[in-house]
Design a protein around this nucleic acid. Structure first.
Length: 571
RNA sequence: CGGAGCGUAGCUCAGCCUGGCUAGAGCACUUGGUUUGGGACCAAGACGUCGCAGGUUCAAAUCCUGUCGCUCCGACCA
């Protein structure tokens, strides 16, 4: 491709809308343009890079035995009602109506569609295992799209769904995808680490997210340098997540006035001086408009994902002040669970068998001291509900845990039979018994992966594309484009020879000064630049500049061979 | 959904507080010239319903109201 024949609108200045470096570079290097919030056009260069990521994904999925299909993005709502997600996912579902006013949904994911398909086509254990995947545009009504392609209303996703006759088979399918994902991100030149992930309301322990460490990531990963433990903060636990040593109750519960005290911190200060670790924090949530109490140690924070797992639903919300008053007769700041039997009470494991605690009295301006968990509070269930923080001891080896922000680029999940049961994906096993297929689902955010690559691989001058996903591998840069000049003739020869070798090469044939061409090639981030200028050509040489390496002066006749060698080395 | 900030040329922004004469700069773009190994220079030129609607006023980019859009923060921490 000749530069003058394509469109690469590079920008010297950063558009005001971009906040993080990868978003700025996507715009500045002329890879994407915004149509409106959360919706982007891929320009020729951006699309080439996207297609390369897609191709790596496709090759590795095929290698792992998955079958490519293409499902409709437009879906009937009834299958969503059957799976129960029409309600559960209503916040992210885009809905449209046709001329007959019938409603449709734009697919945010495809469990319902693929399971309906399999329900009709697979009826014997002999037809399994099967794994279907597609690379397709997904639609999600995100609360707040941001950071360019990172969180968009519309994005390209690779989604795969495995169907097995047995649980062991499903685990093997899961493992295959896990391994394929590791290969995919490695081939994209991306450092992505698999971490244990929250399984939410599905339960089970088979879920990993592939995370790219980045300060700008929207997720937090907890990891241990000692034993390699790594988990999403929503899932992570520490040695502190276990029950404390039992404490004997000492003395009766005592009510005392605390006028004006509304927070844990207020109670920790004189004249009360109750350390946060000796307080019980009482939170009130509404599940289907019924109150639920959640108890934590005063110095701990709630992990909502863990609460969702315990409640078995994600449709709950924090109660508002007046709702709390209606339920407990007191306002936030004076809440407690002593004597509460009319509502379920979930307490963090760390509170189990603690005594001598202080908590609100359910009367504004009063607290209770000498509270013992087992004795004074009727706990429905103890569970790990707390958020792990940096420095806490690793649950496996005890070393201090670290916390790092990261971008989630992939997720593998063993689903079980939730969807196969709901949508009748049943088969007959060896004994002729009807069973639901055991499913797994596996996603890669392709557009997000592309941006994560830039977020991880850039410098002050621009993008540093890994060879495998660069929109063009080589940029041939004649420093003069005077027709008939030796410089241009050499450049054309090198360009033609590399093209003949199937190298993705672009010829910067613009009539621009050398500085402009150099800056642009570095901004766009081509892995290899071959500069042909009068000065070096007078010595019979051209210059090969790997984007991330040192400049090489080579004989002009050897330039093509040397470039091919560099490409081979990187492969 | 709550809070904050911003909407002026393709891009980055000034002007607004304190209303006034023909709405500006840099970059990008067009033409001509000089340049040509790290984002050149000179000259001429083209490009704007100042987001939109309404109001106040002799007069609105500027003040007021509404509305739309964009960006950021938050959306349990009692």
């Amino acid at each position: 491709m000749r530069w003058t024949e394509t469109l690469i609108p590079t920008l010297k200045e950063t558009p005001a809308e971009a906040e993080i470096v990868s978003h700025k570079l996507l715009l500045r290097a002329g890879l994407i343009r915004k149509l409106t919030g959360g919706l982007y056009t891929f320009l020729p260069l951006g699309l080439r890079a996207l297609r390369k990521v897609e191709q790596i994904v496709r090759e590795e999925m095929n290698r792992a035995g998955a079958l490519e299909v293409l499902m409709p993005a437009l879906q009937p709502p009834d299958i969503w009602q059957q799976s129960g997600r029409y309600e559960a996912a209503r916040d992210v579902l885009f809905k449209v109506r046709d001329r007959a006013k019938k409603e449709w949904v734009l697919g945010p994911t495809h469990e319902e569609v693929i399971t309906s398909l399999v329900a009709g086509e697979i009826s014997s254990y002999r037809q399994m295992p099967k794994n279907f995947y597609q690379i397709q545009t997904k639609f999600r009504d995100e609360i707040r799209p941001r950071f360019g392609l990172m969180r968009a209303k519309e994005f390209v996703m690779k989604d795969a769904y495995s169907f097995d006759a047995t649980d062991e088979g499903a685990q093997a399918s899961y493992r295959k995808m896990y391994d394929a994902y590791a290969r995919i991100f490695q081939r994209c030149g991306l450092k992505a680490i698999p971490v244990e992930a929250d399984t939410g309301v599905m339960g089970g322990k088979f879920s990993h997210e592939f995370m790219v460490p980045a300060e700008t990531g929207e997720n937090e990963v907890v990891f241990c340098e000692g034993c390699g433990y790594a988990a999403n903060v929503e899932k992570a636990s520490s040695k502190w997540s276990a029950p404390s040593p039992p404490q004997a109750p000492s003395g009766a519960v005592e009510r005392f006035p605390t006028p004006g005290v509304a927070t844990i911190e207020d109670l920790a200060r004189p004249p009360y001086g109750v350390p946060a670790s000796r307080q019980i924090k009482t939170l009130v949530f509404l599940v289907e408009s019924k109150p639920v109490l959640v108890l934590l140690r005063g110095d701990d924070q709630l992990n909502e994902a863990k609460l969702a797992g315990v409640l078995g639903t994600i449709t709950f919300r924090a109660a508002e002040s007046e709702e709390i008053h209606a339920a407990l007769g007191a306002h936030p700041g004076s809440l407690g669970a002593v004597g509460v039997t009319q509502y379920p009470v979930y307490a963090d494991e760390r509170l189990r068998d603690t005594a001598g605690m202080t908590t609100g009295a359910n009367a504004d301006g009063y607290h209770l001291r000498n509270v013992a968990l087992g004795r004074d509070i009727a706990v429905t269930r103890f569970a790990d509900l707390r958020l792990v923080r940096a420095g806490e001891p690793c649950p496996h080896c005890g070393q201090p845990l670290k916390v790092q922000r990261a971008i989630e680029v992939g997720h593998v999940f063993k689903l079980g039979t939730k969807y196969s049961e709901a949508l009748n994906a049943l088969f007959l096993d060896e004994t002729g018994k009807q069973q639901p297929a055991v499913m797994g689902c596996y996603g890669i955010g392709v557009t997000r992966t592309l941006q994560a690559i830039i977020e991880q691989s850039h410098d002050d001058f621009g993008i540093i594309w890994p060879m495998s996903v660069a929109p063009y591998t080589v940029c041939v840069t004649p420093l003069s484009v005077v027709p008939g000049s030796d410089v241009l003739r050499r450049a054309e020869e090198i360009y033609a020879a590399l093209s003949a070798q199937q190298v993705d090469v672009i010829l910067d044939d613009r009539n621009e000064r050398p500085g402009v061409k150099f800056k642009d090639s570095e901004l766009v981030g081509f892995p290899i630049r071959v500069a042909i200028g009068e000065k070096s050509l007078a010595k019979g040489e051209v210059e090969i500049k790997p984007r991330a390496g040192a400049l090489l002066s080579v004989k002009a006749d050897e330039a093509v061979a040397r470039v091919l060698e560099l490409i081979r080395q990187a492969a």
